[in-house]
Amino acid sequence: MRHFDIEINDLQNRLINMAKLVQLMIKIASKEFIKKDSQQINIILSIENEINIQEIIIDNKCLKLIALNQPVGTDLRLITSVIKINSDLERMADEAVNISKMAYDLPNFLQLKFLFINILKMIDDVQNMIMDCIKAFNTNNSQLALLVLKKDNKVDFLRDRIVDDIKSLMIKFTNIDIIQKALDLIFIAKSIERIGDHATNISEDIVFMLHGKDVRHPQRRI
């Protein structure tokens, strides 16, 4: 195997590991809706720290590969896609931290519990989207990547439903603590939805990486 290919493999493996770490963060964050645990945020922050380190390592590796090898064709598309996916994964990790911070004492608010079902559904959906992205990237499967785009619509729909439910709830309650937590839930739903958007970006990058075809913003063709 050529040295260049070894470096490319290393890059791919690092990116996949990073995506798995993001999945783990979201999984831990989702547990906070079920049980209050002060240790969970610390675990999430330590994983985020590792992701930040990996983000810099991956960016540096990409820069080095471009500067030293002047890649073209599939190699060029792969490296530029990795740079973008890397950035999306890091932002997903930031959103997972936001979710974890805001979800910390949610299990104490029983009045809000009925909203958790859709929140957890959303989390499930974005986790599936990330898993499909990893599979599509790993197996060069553009069809799977395109399916991720469709799944994002469901996440957006759930977010809208959650916001509607919270609006109805806010009318009923005057307790400021509950209102505050309800607002936090809106931000959580927004964060999960943003994770879905990042997964969508990744799937678009995978299609570009595999076929050189730009599927972003289909309604805005230049």
């Binding site: 890649p71 073209v72 064709g73 599939t74 190699d75 060029l76 598309r77 076929h211 050189g212």
Partner: peptide, 14 residues
Amino acid sequence: FTCPSKKETESYVT
């Protein structure tokens, strides 16, 4: 150099 249509081209340029 970004997206050749033939496999041989891809192999050669990379």
